[in-house]
Write a protein that binds this DNA or RNA. Structure first.
Length: 109
DNA sequence: CGGTTGACGCTGT
DNA sequence: GACAGCGCCAACC
C-alpha cells in the first residue's frame, strides 16, 4: 500500500478493492475519503487511473448507477461489456439491481 | 500564484 | 417529472 499524498492514489486503492461482480459510486468513494462534495474529483481521478491498468473503472458509476463515464473508455460499449462480463446486468446504460451489488467502502470496510 | 477543468450531487424552478 | 444552475475540492497549465 503506497501512502501517496495524491488524492487520486487513494481513489485507486478503493476501486481496486472493489470485488468482482460489485460496483461502487463516486459519491461513496468521495465520502469515504472525506470529500463528500468532491465526487467530481473521484471521477477525475479515474481519468488519471488510465495509467493503472489494474483499476476497474467500469465498476465505478455515479450515484444513480448510471454508466456516466462509459464515454471515457476505449469504446462506449466497452464499459457495459466489462460489467456484463462480471455478471452485472446493465440496461439502458444503467446498472440493474444497482443497490444490491453496490459496494460501499464505508460499510464494507 | 491564479484560472480552468472535471467520469458528480443536490436544490430550485 | 424534467431541466438548469450552482457548489465542491483537488490537480493541471
Amino acid at each position: 500500500m503506497e501512502n501517496k499524498s495524491s488524492f487520486y492514489s487513494r481513489v485507486y486503492e478503493i476501486v481496486k478493492l472493489v470485488p468482482v461482480g460489485r460496483i461502487t459510486t463516486y459519491g461513496c468513494i468521495a465520502k469515504y475519503l472525506g470529500t463528500a462534495s468532491g465526487a467530481r474529483m473521484v471521477g477525475y481521478a479515474m481519468n488519471v487511473s488510465h495509467s493503472d491498468s489494474e483499476i476497474p473503472a467500469h465498476r465505478v458509476v455515479n450515484r444513480n448507477g448510471i454508466l456516466t463515464g462509459k464515454h471515457h473508455f476505449d469504446g462506449v460499449n466497452l464499459m457495459q461489456e466489462l460489467l456484463e462480463s462480471e455478471g452485472i446486468v446493465v440496461k439502458n446504460d444503467k446498472i440493474v439491481d444497482f443497490e444490491k451489488i453496490l459496494w460501499d467502502p464505508m460499510i464494507e470496510l
